[in-house]
Design a protein around this nucleic acid. Structure first.
Lengths: 131, 131
DNA sequence: CAGCATCCTGGAAGATACTG
DNA sequence: CAGTATCTTCCAGGATGCTG
């Protein structure tokens, strides 16, 4: 039997979306989620619901603007739930939705991968730069 | 027994790196790899070795500059191997290294996740915007 | 506390032209 | 073919100040 090409395999997929295509919505979604703040915020929320200030503390170096923007986008895209308690001052708690949890399964691995493979990457850089 | 906090769990990990910290090298690595071009190039190379122009064709919309830059960074970080054949004109073939393959296991899922969950995200946006 | 509004800058990224 | 070099634009993202 003939070897299938990558293009054929893609065409055979059940998806209607293909992130290889610049105009495909999934390409924009990929752009959205392949972002360090998304990885870090999602990972933090994976440890359980957290308040705005807690997230800001754990995800060191994030500005309010970026944190709010990331949170809003994640909420809009259905990955994060925002719960507002009408205390004084207000208490806002963020948590993962089902969709967010499924994304975290992938994203969380990305953070772990970076941490686990740092030594190998450093070694590779040494080799590359020393040539 | 007491509930462990997220901070305690992190401290108990065997890693020397923690991407939550802004200054940690793994944070920079995370920034590097959480990038749409990295996802797309790595995924394409997952289908087997490919030449520069093949990658450029499959990954629609990437400029030479971005493609070269992405490829160089991936090579330097030990995820991609660059093979130059001294034909005229030269033939350059890129392929995944072991490290690159292990990263692809995570990254590839990211592209698939975006394609698979696009309908859900669109629905969530409709809900959010209609409020 | 959990934001929003505004201003501003560095660097990511596109366009274009050239080459071994 | 597989880049490099240069110019330019654009906006992500930081800083700052204010508020329900």
């Amino acid at each position: 039997m003939a070897t299938t090409t990558a293009a054929q395999r893609r065409a055979a997929r059940k998806h209607d979306y293909d992130a290889y295509l610049a105009a495909c919505p999934s390409r924009q979604l990929l752009e959205r989620i392949s972002n360090k703040w998304v990885v870090l915020v999602l990972t933090e929320l994976g440890d359980g619901p957290a308040r705005y200030s807690e997230i800001a503390r754990v995800v060191a170096g994030v500005s309010q603007k970026m944190l709010t923007q990331t949170l809003r986008n994640l909420e809009r895209d259905g990955m994060v739930h925002r719960d507002i308690e009408a205390t004084v001052p207000v208490t806002v708690t963020y948590s993962l939705t089902e969709l967010g949890s499924s994304l975290l399964k992938v994203m969380g691995q990305l953070k772990l991968w970076a941490e686990d493979n740092m030594p190998e990457v450093i070694a590779a850089r040494g080799r590359y730069d020393g040539m």
